[in-house]
């Protein structure tokens, strides 16, 4: 216990008496951590945006005007049995008219035309697939011979092509983001490792003197490892603290940029706050402890 307290005391003395080195090491670790975390958050933002965009694609199945509810239900049941279909929404003739009127409530011309006509709209099904690339197969299935008497038209959303392009582009971007994040993580690890190695290097003479006086490896190593862990804790705390204003700044602007597509990065951050902090904390502490242990090994062996 006495040795433990002395180790802790020596660790804090190391931090305090090398204040500039401690500051520089903590700063580098903080920047490395912050960079990687921001990249991961941007990844979350991009993935969320992609999901929202993908969710906007659907397939509309328009039935002939005189199609009965039973005929619609047959198609519906067959669609439900398909594994690539996610959801099916039925819109009756009456519902379709109501929605149309609501959409054009500010257009008196359309309103007066509708008053004079009998309901010209058809019953329909809105089909959502699991992934955008499954729409073609569903469309082919619905346009087959067996439904020709019931289904008048199968209409993929006008945005489908744009969305498909976006999907493939975003897919590439997502993969790229993963690789970039990985690359930056490696850079962050190397920078942190070298910073700590440099910090230990400045102590190499002290290490050799301690050995000459008869200090055990534990008494030499542990204060320096603890000091490195302390830098890591402070760096993780600083990084998490700075994420608050960054997320507050990025969140609304990202949503404004994406228009209708809204991804709540702020909620994501606050919902996963402890996870983010703990992940940074663990990453930084493990890195610091491993780096300092490796860096010290050569001086302890001499």
């Amino acid at each position: 216990m006495l040795t433990f307290f002395r180790i802790v005391k020596f660790a804090f003395a190391t931090v305090w008496r090398n204040v500039w080195l401690s500051f520089a090491t903590t700063l580098v670790m903080f920047l490395a951590l912050f960079m990687v975390t921001v990249l991961i958050l941007l990844n979350v933002l991009a993935t969320g945006a992609l999901e929202v965009v993908q969710d906007k694609v659907d397939l509309s199945v328009y039935f002939v005007s005189d199609a009965t509810t039973e005929e619609v239900n047959v198609v519906r049941t067959q669609l439900q049995s398909r594994s690539d279909v996610n959801t099916i929404t039925y819109i009756s003739k009456e519902q379709a008219l109501k929605d149309f009127e609501e959409r054009h409530s500010d257009n008196p011309l359309i309103q007066s035309a509708l008053d004079e006509l009998e309901n010209p709209l058809q019953p329909s099904l809105i089909v959502k697939a699991n992934t955008p690339d499954q729409y073609s197969a569903i469309s082919e299935f619905l346009t087959s011979e067996q439904f020709s008497g019931v289904i008048e038209d199968v209409n993929l959303d006008d945005n489908r092509q744009i969305v498909e392009k976006l999907t493939s582009t975003t897919g590439i971007l997502s993969q790229l983001a993963v690789w970039v994040s990985l690359l930056f993580t490696i850079i962050a690890v190397l920078i942190t490792f070298n910073t700590i190695r440099l910090a230990i290097y400045t102590q190499k003479d002290e290490i050799s003197v301690m050995k000459l006086v008869g200090a055990t490896r534990t008494l030499i190593r542990m204060p320096l490892v603890l000091a490195a862990a302390f830098y890591a804790v402070v760096a993780a705390a600083l990084s998490t603290a700075l994420l608050f204003p960054v997320v507050n700044y990025i969140g609304p602007r990202a949503n404004a940029f994406l228009g209708e597509v809204t991804v709540d990065i702020e909620s994501y951050f606050f919902d996963n706050f402890w996870l983010i902090f703990l992940a940074q904390f663990t990453f930084a502490v493990v890195l610091a402890v491993v780096s300092s242990s490796i860096a010290m090994r050569r001086y302890l062996k001499k």
């Binding site: 006495l2 040795t3 002395r6 301690m210 006086v213 008869g214 200090a215 055990t216 008494l219």
Partner: peptide, 11 residues
């Protein structure tokens, strides 16, 4: 004091 600390001498 370090020479005594390495020997685990009491405070």
């Amino acid at each position: 004091a370090f020479a005594l600390v390495v020997r685990g001498a009491p405070h």
